[in-house]
Computed example of a mutant assay.
Amino acid sequence: MTDKQVEKTKIDLYVIRKVKERRLKVGMSQADLAYALDVSVGFIGKIESPNYPTHYNIKHLNDLAKILKCSLQDFLPKKPL
C-alpha cells in the first residue's frame, strides 16, 4: 500500500462485512450485486478485499438496501465504533 492510499476504517470494515453477509444470505454473487448496483465486478471485489482502500459511500448503501431488500440501518452498528 502506498502512502497516499487510505486504509479501511473500522466502520468501513463493519459496513462491508454486513453488506457481504446480506449478499450471501440472499444468494447473490459479487457479479450479481455489481450488475444490480451498476458498478464493475472488480469494484465489489476491491471493496470486499482488505487489500484495497475502496469502500461503499452513502449512495451505494441506500441502493444496496433497496437491492438487498433491507433497511439501511442493517448495515450500521448500533453504537459508534
Rank of each mutant, 00 (worst) to 15 (best):
T2Y: 11
T2Q: 08
T2W: 08
D3G: 09
K4A: 12
K4S: 12
Q5T: 11
V6C: 05
K8H: 04
T9Q: 01
T9R: 02
T9I: 04
K10D: 13
K10T: 09
K10F: 07
D12Y: 03
Y14Q: 05
Y14R: 02
Y14I: 01
V15M: 01
I16H: 02
I16F: 04
R17S: 13
R17N: 15
K18N: 02
V19N: 05
K20E: 11
E21F: 04
E21D: 13
L24W: 03
L24T: 11
L24E: 15
K25V: 08
K25F: 14
V26D: 00
M28Y: 15
S29H: 05
S29L: 05
Q30M: 13
A31K: 13
A31P: 01
D32N: 14
A34L: 05
A34D: 06
A34Q: 03
Y35R: 14
Y35P: 00
D38P: 02
S40I: 00
V41K: 14
G42D: 11
G42S: 13
F43H: 15
F43Y: 15
I44V: 15
K46W: 07
K46Y: 13
I47H: 03
I47G: 04
P50D: 11
N51W: 08
N51V: 06
Y52Q: 06
P53D: 09
H55W: 02
Y56L: 03
N57L: 07
N57S: 06
N57F: 00
I58Q: 08
I58F: 11
I58C: 03
K59T: 15
L61S: 05
L61R: 01
L61Q: 04
D63L: 12
D63V: 05
D63P: 01
A65E: 02
K66R: 14
K66I: 10
K66H: 13
K66D: 10
I67P: 07
I67V: 12
L68N: 07
K69M: 06
K69W: 03
C70F: 05
S71R: 08
S71Y: 09
L72M: 15
L72G: 09
Q73H: 13
D74Y: 07
D74A: 11
D74I: 03
D74K: 03
F75R: 01
L76R: 06
L76Y: 15
L76I: 10
P77C: 04
K79D: 12
P80F: 10
P80H: 10
